[in-house]
Every structure is written in C-alpha cells, then in structure tokens.
Measured scan of single mutants.
Amino acid sequence: MAAGGDHGSPDSYRSPLASRYASPEMCFVFSDRYKFRTWRQLWLWLAEAEQTLGLPITDEQIQEMKSNLENIDFKMAAEEEKRLRHDVMAHVHTFGHCCPKAAGIIHLGATSCYVGDNTDLIILRNALDLLLPKLARVISRLADFAKERASLPTLGFTHFQPAQLTTVGKRCCLWIQDLCMDLQNLKRVRDDLRFRGVKGTTGTQASFLQLFEGDDHKVEQLDKMVTEKAGFKRAFIITGQTYTRKVDIEVLSVLASLGASVHKICTDIRLLANLKEMEEPFEKQQIGSSAMPYKRNPMRSERCCSLARHLMTLVMDPLQTASVQWFERTLDDSANRRICLAEAFLTADTILNTLQNISEGLVVYPKVIERRIRQELPFMATENIIMAMVKAGGSRQDCHEKIRVLSQQAASVVKQEGGDNDLIERIQVDAYFSPIHSQLDHLLDPSSFTGRASQQVQRFLEEEVYPLLKPYESVMKVKAELCL
C-alpha cells in the first residue's frame, strides 16, 4: 500500500493539533497551500530580480507567473513527485505547466533550498508574528487579574506546605514575570531571523556568478533584492546548502521555554482548584465526569500541561538535527523538520489560546482563602504575639514557653481530632496574655502579614508589564474561544 493518505478522510490519521486544537490561522501558515504558494512567490521574486539585473526574462513571463501564483494543481504535483521522487522539481514542473512561456526560467540558477529553506524562514517569521500578540493578550488578562487582587491576602506555599502570606495578585505576578520573559525572547528570536537568500547549491553562489558572467556586484544585488522582497532586513552571508540548523534550535528553545512557563502556571491553577481557592472557567453544560456528576475538573489547565510537556520535548529534535548536518548538509534534517517545526508552533498556539481562555474567566473564592488563612495564621502570628507581650512588660522566655504549650495543644486538636485551630481562643482565655487581649485582632490582621506584596504588584505592572504590552494595544480586544 502506498504511503500517505487522504487526510480529510475519517479513515486516515490526522494530527489532533490540526484537527482538534490549533487555530485556523496557525494551521494555514503550515498548510501545503501556504507552503507551495510561497515557493511560487519566491520563484517570481527571483525572476523579477534577475530581470532587473539584466537576464533575458520578459515582462510577459513575469506576468504569467504572477497570474498563476494561486493556480496550484495539487493532484498534478503529487503525481509528479511520485514520478520524480523530488518535491521541488515536482512543483517546478507543475508551475511550468500553467506558465508555459515562463517554464524555462522558473528556478533559474537556484537549488531546492532556495524555495525550501527560504519558505521555512518566512513561515517561522509569520508563525512567530501570530504567537506574539496571543502571548501579549494572556499577559494582559493576567495583569488585569493581578491588579484587581493585588491586596487580597492568601496563604503562600513553599514545598506545598503553608508559608508566609502573600497576595493573590502577587502570586499571579510570578506567572506574568515568566511570560514577559517569554514574550521578550519570542520577539528577540523573531527579529534575529535572517533570510537564507540566493546562495546556490553549497552556499557559494557559483551558479549565479556564472549567470551574471562573473559580476560579483550583481550577485550581491540579486541576494539583497530577493531578501528585501521577502520582507527581511538581512540575509546570511555564510550558508551551506541550507541555512544553519542552529536557527531551528533557537526558535524551538524559546517555544519550549514558553511551554515550561505555561505548565507551571496551569499546575498552580490545578492545585488551587483542589484547594477550592480558584477555578478555571466551567461552562453551564460542561460535564466533569461521566460517573461523578459533582466533579469540576480543571480540564483546560490539564490540557495545557499535557501539550506543554510535548512542546518542551520537541527542542531535542533540532538539537540532534543540527549535530548531524555533515559538511554542507545531509538530508537527516528533512523529514524531522517537516514534523517538529509545525508541531512546535501548533502546540504553542494551542496552549496560548487555551491559557487566554482560562485567564479571561478565572474565578476566585475569597471566603475559602480566608478560612485557610484562619487555619494557619495563628501559628504564624506567634512571633508577633511574643513581641507584643514583651512590649507590655512580659518575659520573652516565659511567653515563648506559654505559646509553645498552647500551640501544641491547638495542633493536637487540628491533627488528632480534625478540629479547627483554636490557638487564639486559648490565648484569649489565658490570664497571662490579658495585657494584649485587646491587640489580638490587630495582630491577626492578614494584611499585616503580606509585606509589600501589593506595592510590588503595582510597581511591576507599571514599570515592566504595561510598557512591554504597549506595541500590542491594537490587538488586545480579541477574545479566545474554545470549541473543545
């Protein structure tokens, strides 16, 4: 049975990233139509530049190519590739079939990587351009969430054990800070992308030097003109047959890092959902379990974690691919890159769409948070109580021993009897502590235990987050809708 299948058929496997999760716009960027249309555009740009620099290419040939950029006979191309065992030459023939007058000058002087690699770089750039505003929107939604809850005390956790208090907004800023680093890295790697350009079979530009009869300047002009037509500021000066596969490492490393950030955020949300302090959106008709109707599973956060793990592992592909590119190139890269580049971007696209949807509907339960604080705060307040007693004339050592005994009794009630923490009640009825009984409410005010959390939130948002989001103001209103 021949390899390949009808990918629109229910009898043929289709990647869930495309069929179930990723956005239509990201799927289109990695589609065959987008790819092969870009090949034709690159052939047109090459012909236009070659004509401008004096090669015998007519206006009629150029116009014929322009008129057929979208006229792609995919069936013919597939048949040609089956016959020739070469995808680029299959599309040269297919393009030439609908451009008979231009057929002889299509791909003039070029090698397969002229269309293959340059198209990949265009796709990487455009895919990054799709991700950047999506990530900015996630940051914006979380920034709104953090600002609104900047002063809401909550129990902090280290080692997932109760620690000092923080605020809900401050905790959210930990998430935002990681995503801001990801946004900066995505922008950097996007701006650092260079075009492969017009380089020939081993990167020496020998074929173009021959076409222009040894004119170095025209060869350099050709490279520059096509690079500018493709919208790049610069091209690699040095290439082998391909652009260095280190570029793929750079791009997928940034995406993998984004995956790590999203995994951490969504894990926190899942843990908070278990504590009943916070939940992701839950639709009115949504079913959490087929057997347990009360369940409210954090399905979206779980999906993000599941896909983020996949995204983090994909960076190993370009690392290994770059390491086995012998001399000017081997074909070890080809099949692998067809999979890992598309999957990385479709996965990143999915987790950003999902995280935006989550961040637009996060639900906080202040009463649950308050109750958990009441359970733990008495123990945390013991040092403040000791200091207040010393100020009232008591002995630190005597007070410490009193607190120690009462704390152990209260802990026994919590752990052995399943009761509430009654340390404060014990202190309130103990005559030894009568000098500070009137101060206990103040000493137990949760806001006095959150330090500068709310001020940190305000400063972080104003100095770091809002300036970073400013270039994306025009796209901030787009909502994230999930079908599944």
Rank of each mutant, 00 (worst) to 15 (best):
residue 265 I to V: 12
residue 399 C to P: 04
residue 453 A to D: 04
residue 424 I to H: 12
residue 364 V to R: 04
residue 399 C to Y: 06
residue 143 A to G: 12
residue 217 H to E: 10
residue 43 W to D: 01
residue 434 S to F: 11
residue 179 L to T: 12
residue 20 R to K: 07
residue 38 T to D: 00
residue 335 A to H: 04
residue 456 Q to W: 00
residue 50 E to V: 07
residue 365 Y to Q: 12
residue 287 I to W: 02
residue 414 V to N: 03
residue 184 Q to I: 14
residue 376 E to W: 05
residue 424 I to R: 13
residue 464 E to F: 05
residue 54 G to Q: 09
residue 148 E to G: 11
residue 111 T to C: 01
residue 330 T to I: 03
residue 10 P to G: 08
residue 33 R to F: 07
residue 314 L to C: 11
residue 138 V to H: 11
residue 422 D to C: 09
residue 483 C to N: 15
residue 438 S to M: 12
residue 381 A to Q: 11
residue 472 Y to R: 12
residue 206 A to F: 03
residue 283 E to L: 11
residue 266 C to S: 09
residue 324 V to C: 12
residue 373 I to D: 00
residue 174 L to W: 11
residue 262 V to L: 10
residue 107 H to V: 00
residue 45 W to A: 11
residue 123 I to W: 03
residue 173 C to H: 02
residue 91 H to M: 11
residue 347 T to N: 14
residue 427 I to E: 02
residue 128 L to S: 10
residue 245 R to S: 01
residue 106 I to K: 00
residue 430 D to A: 13
residue 22 A to T: 13
residue 366 P to A: 05
residue 268 D to T: 09
residue 237 I to S: 07
residue 201 T to M: 00
residue 12 S to D: 11
residue 469 L to M: 11
residue 309 R to D: 03
residue 202 T to P: 01
residue 470 K to N: 13
residue 54 G to Y: 01
residue 393 G to C: 07
residue 194 R to C: 13
residue 201 T to F: 02
residue 382 T to C: 09
residue 200 G to P: 03
residue 50 E to F: 06
residue 122 I to T: 05
residue 126 N to V: 09
residue 53 L to V: 14
residue 360 E to C: 08
residue 342 A to W: 10
residue 243 Y to I: 09
residue 66 K to H: 11
residue 260 A to Q: 08
residue 53 L to M: 10
residue 439 Q to L: 13
residue 318 P to W: 05
residue 51 Q to T: 06
residue 205 Q to N: 13
residue 149 R to Q: 11
residue 383 E to A: 01
residue 86 H to M: 01
residue 261 S to A: 09
residue 112 S to F: 02
residue 104 G to N: 13
residue 247 V to A: 12
residue 427 I to T: 06
residue 211 L to K: 02
residue 4 G to Q: 15
residue 99 C to I: 09
residue 439 Q to P: 04
residue 164 Q to T: 05
residue 172 C to A: 08
residue 384 N to Q: 10
residue 140 S to M: 15
residue 106 I to D: 00
residue 66 K to L: 09
residue 253 S to E: 07
residue 452 R to F: 07
residue 450 T to W: 03
residue 81 E to V: 00
residue 302 E to N: 00
residue 346 L to G: 08
residue 129 D to E: 14
residue 294 Y to T: 02
residue 246 K to T: 04
residue 173 C to E: 02
residue 424 I to G: 12
residue 83 R to S: 11
residue 468 L to A: 15
residue 66 K to R: 08
residue 157 F to A: 10
residue 64 E to Q: 13
residue 14 R to Q: 15
residue 130 L to F: 10
residue 142 L to I: 09
residue 231 G to C: 08
residue 328 E to S: 02
residue 285 Q to C: 12
residue 484 L to V: 08
residue 85 R to K: 13
residue 39 W to K: 00
residue 4 G to S: 14
residue 251 V to T: 12
residue 171 R to K: 04
residue 380 M to Y: 01
residue 190 R to I: 08
residue 64 E to H: 15
residue 325 Q to P: 02
residue 36 F to D: 13
residue 332 D to N: 00
residue 207 S to V: 12
residue 240 G to C: 06
residue 276 K to L: 07
residue 178 D to E: 11
residue 237 I to E: 08
residue 86 H to Y: 00
residue 160 F to K: 06
residue 381 A to I: 08
residue 426 R to C: 04
residue 28 F to M: 11
residue 71 N to W: 10
residue 417 E to G: 12
residue 275 L to W: 12
residue 168 V to N: 03
residue 69 L to C: 15
residue 380 M to Q: 06
residue 228 E to K: 14
residue 431 A to R: 14
residue 32 D to C: 10
residue 39 W to V: 10
residue 396 R to V: 05
residue 42 L to H: 04
residue 392 A to V: 11
residue 15 S to F: 14
residue 370 E to F: 13
residue 278 M to D: 03
residue 362 L to M: 14
residue 144 D to H: 13
residue 193 L to A: 10
residue 126 N to R: 08
residue 67 S to D: 09
residue 155 L to K: 01
residue 426 R to E: 06
residue 167 T to N: 03
residue 156 G to P: 03
residue 429 V to M: 11
residue 342 A to D: 14
residue 192 D to E: 12
residue 172 C to Y: 14
residue 391 K to S: 12
residue 317 D to I: 05
residue 437 H to G: 07
residue 303 R to V: 03
residue 55 L to R: 10
residue 119 T to C: 15
residue 461 L to D: 05
residue 256 A to V: 07
residue 428 Q to G: 11
residue 364 V to G: 03
residue 220 E to V: 11
residue 317 D to P: 06
residue 258 L to Y: 14
residue 94 T to E: 12
